[in-house]
């Protein structure tokens, strides 16, 4: 079979081909199509009626107060989610790093929220936080902590808080896994040496653990920010963007424009704005954090 012998380069390309085809079909093409659609007026019920409108869709969203409201709420939703996930994730990872009998069981259990499908979690949370018959209110009232039921999902501030809590509960395990993996690679000699020098626990955390975690935290925060900023299903399933529009983020806004208002061009333009915002934010954050500079320096 001499004729069929492939060079190493060709074999490499052959192995990459499935990924390239898949990525092209399911990532590159949809993004390119969304960018194209952002410049057209397109009602999905009238698929033959596609009209070029230039930047009109972008003008429309920038003139829409709901877009700006959604944008600011997206910042609140993303900001609080990331801060809480990072703090809790690092803290819990530190606890799970302690060598105790049966710790592996706890590590496994912590993955539970991350494994359960979002739709199941959101629907369960709707019941748990139901103001009238939810178990949370029942417990709080029974224990005498509050006198009357809390409207968890019925007031703007509480609805946003509930949505953030759900996001934190579900995705903190992701932060824990990443941080825990890094913690386990930090040489114990560093801590031993610090102890000999008289460094207490907090000092050891600040001077050894945190710098060692920096790279992984930068990556985790960037990914979690992108994923949270784009999140649709948790908010939609939990509050549908309500009450009013108090938990709209840009993903929910885009869905409303595309599916409720049947303006797919406007929805696509919103998606393009989101890409630009996230791209710019990521570049700035990575630059500020100095990610990768040590490697370049060495």
């Amino acid at each position: 079979m001499r004729g069929f012998r492939l060079s190493d380069r060709q074999v490499g390309i052959l192995f990459m081909l499935p990924f390239l085809v898949t990525a092209g079909a399911f990532m590159v093409w949809p993004v390119a199509e969304a960018v194209r659609l952002a410049f057209y007026s397109y009602n999905p019920l009238r698929p033959d009626d596609l009209t070029w409108v230039g930047f009109e869709n972008f003008e429309r969203i920038f003139d829409d107060p709901l877009f700006w409201e959604s944008f600011s709420q997206a910042l609140v939703w993303t900001g609080w989610s990331i801060v809480l996930q990072t703090l809790l994730g690092v803290g819990l990872a530190m606890l799970l790093h302690v060598a105790l009998p049966g710790i592996a069981v706890f590590r496994g259990l912590l993955l539970f929220p991350y494994i359960v499908p979002t739709v199941v979690i959101a629907l369960n949370w709707r019941w748990i936080f139901n103001s009238e018959i939810g178990i949370v209110n029942h417990a709080l009232v029974s224990l005498g902590i509050v006198e009357q039921n809390i409207a968890w999902l019925s007031t703007p501030n509480m609805a946003m808080t509930s949505a953030v809590l759900l996001n934190v509960w579900k995705y903190t395990p992701f932060v824990i896994i990443c941080v825990l993996a890094r913690l386990q690679t930090i040489p114990t000699e560093l801590y031993d040496a610090a102890k000999v020098d008289g460094a207490r626990a907090w000092r050891r955390f600040i001077d050894i653990t945190l710098p060692m975690l920096k790279e992984v935290l930068v990556v985790v925060i960037v990914f979690r920010t992108i994923w949270t900023f784009n999140k649709f299903e948790e908010i939609y399933l939990l509050t549908r963007g309500g009450p009013g529009t108090s938990t709209f983020n840009l993903a929910v806004y885009a869905f409303e424009e595309g599916m409720a208002n049947l303006r797919l061009g406007v929805a696509a333009a919103t998606g393009v704005v989101m890409i630009v915002l996230l791209l710019a934010g990521t570049v700035v954050y990575v630059r500020v954090s100095g990610f990768g500079q040590e490697e370049k320096g060495s």
């Binding site: 139901n130 103001s131 009238e132 018959i133 039921n149 409207a151 999902l153 019925s154 007031t155 509050t239």
Partner: peptide
Amino acid sequence: MPRAAVEFSFLQVVDQHVAGR
């Protein structure tokens, strides 16, 4: 009305009634 009425849809209204609330 119940405080949570501002989040109620079809199902919640029926639930509220058949739960005697």
